[in-house]
Amino acid sequence: MLATPRDQLFFRSDQHPEGVACGELANRFGLYCIFDRTHSITYIISFAILLAVVLGVFPGILSWLHAWLAWSFVHSVPIIDGGDQIAQALTLLFVVFHFGDMRLTHWHTNSMFAHVDRLFAPVRAAAVLLFMIQGSVVYLHASIAKFGVPEWPNGTAIWYWMQDPTFAPPHWLYVPINALLSYAPTALLVTYGILAFEFILGVAIFFRTSARRSLLVPGLVLHVVFAMVFGLWSFLCSMSSLLIMYTYVPTFYSLRGDLQCSGRSVS
């Protein structure tokens, strides 16, 4: 929200002259439909919630507000980005993950409420499993669904994306990448490599925790490259969060024993 002008977030058109696409439910409960999209109060509320989320204060409460904010955004903007939809799903899962969380911040363990933590440990364990299922479904769909587009099976998809001015990278990056992708073996290697790696990420839910955790860094690198080449920066933020919760958090919690379950129980 800081890096994107309001007129680009809430794009005006003949279909949506006010720059918002509010349905009946969003008109009643959506932040950007209750107030004027350009009203400063909407941005003040948004920034306050997101800043508190980044700082990690009151996770048991802020997770609900974060989910409401993500829901409001997805149901208000005329043009929805895939990263926004992922963010909406993840924030709902974080509500489950932080259910009953009475800590002042998520940066430390509050021994005062240790008995409450033990009570809701199964809920958080279920949330971790839901994160893993979400990650698996997203990457399997990303890999398998691409075969319905002819350019992916024939290995030319990435080259064609590079030619689209909407997604083409800056000139200094376009020239060397386009030169590489104009060479058929390179184009095939890159295209099929993406399909293969997304499929591996999709089936990683069945891997041992150590093997699944080893996919975190390559997965982050993949999305950083996507962001640099195609400008998918908000998608990078959402998918980085999903990757961490999918590949790293189950191992982390099994090692610390916070969920009182073994790594194998969520593998």
Rank of each mutant, 00 (worst) to 15 (best):
F147N: 09
G148H: 10
G148T: 13
G148Y: 07
G148R: 12
G148S: 10
G148C: 08
G148I: 09
V149R: 11
P150D: 08
P150E: 09
E151L: 14
E151D: 09
E151Q: 13
E151H: 10
E151V: 14
W152P: 00
W152E: 04
W152L: 09
W152G: 03
W152F: 06
P153Q: 12
P153V: 08
P153G: 07
P153E: 05
P153M: 12
N154E: 11
N154D: 12
N154Q: 12
G155F: 04
G155W: 01
G155L: 05
T156E: 10
T156N: 10
T156I: 13
T156W: 02
A157M: 06
A157S: 06
A157Y: 00
A157E: 04
A157D: 00
I158V: 13
I158F: 05
I158M: 08
W159L: 15
W159I: 04
Y160I: 10
Y160W: 11
Y160F: 11
W161G: 05
W161I: 10
W161H: 07
W161N: 08
W161K: 07
W161Y: 11
W161F: 10
M162D: 00
M162E: 03
Q163Y: 01
Q163D: 12
Q163V: 04
Q163N: 14
Q163I: 04
D164N: 13
D164Y: 04
D164A: 07
D164Q: 10
D164T: 03
P165Y: 01
P165K: 02
P165D: 03
T166C: 05
T166V: 15
T166F: 06
T166K: 12
T166H: 10
T166W: 02
T166E: 12
T166G: 11
F167K: 04
F167M: 13
F167D: 02
F167Q: 02
F167N: 01
F167H: 06
A168L: 03
A168F: 01
A168Y: 00
P169F: 02
P170V: 13
P170K: 13
H171V: 14
H171R: 15
H171E: 13
H171C: 05
W172E: 10
W172Q: 09
L173Q: 06
L173K: 09
L173P: 02
Y174W: 14
Y174M: 07
Y174P: 00
Y174D: 00
V175L: 15
V175S: 10
V175I: 15
V175K: 15
P176A: 12
P176D: 03
I177H: 00
I177T: 12
I177R: 02
N178S: 15
N178D: 13
N178Y: 08
A179G: 11
A179I: 07
A179T: 15
A179S: 15
L180H: 06
L180P: 03
L180S: 13
L180C: 13
L180Q: 06
L181Y: 01
L181W: 01
S182D: 13
S182Y: 03
S182H: 05
Y183V: 08
Y183R: 12
Y183M: 08
Y183P: 01
A184P: 14
A184H: 09
A184S: 12
A184D: 08
P185T: 02
P185R: 03
P185V: 04
T186V: 15
T186H: 10
T186N: 11
T186M: 15
T186G: 04
T186F: 13
A187P: 00
A187R: 02
L188S: 08
L188C: 05
L188W: 08
L188E: 02
L188F: 09
L188T: 09
L188M: 12
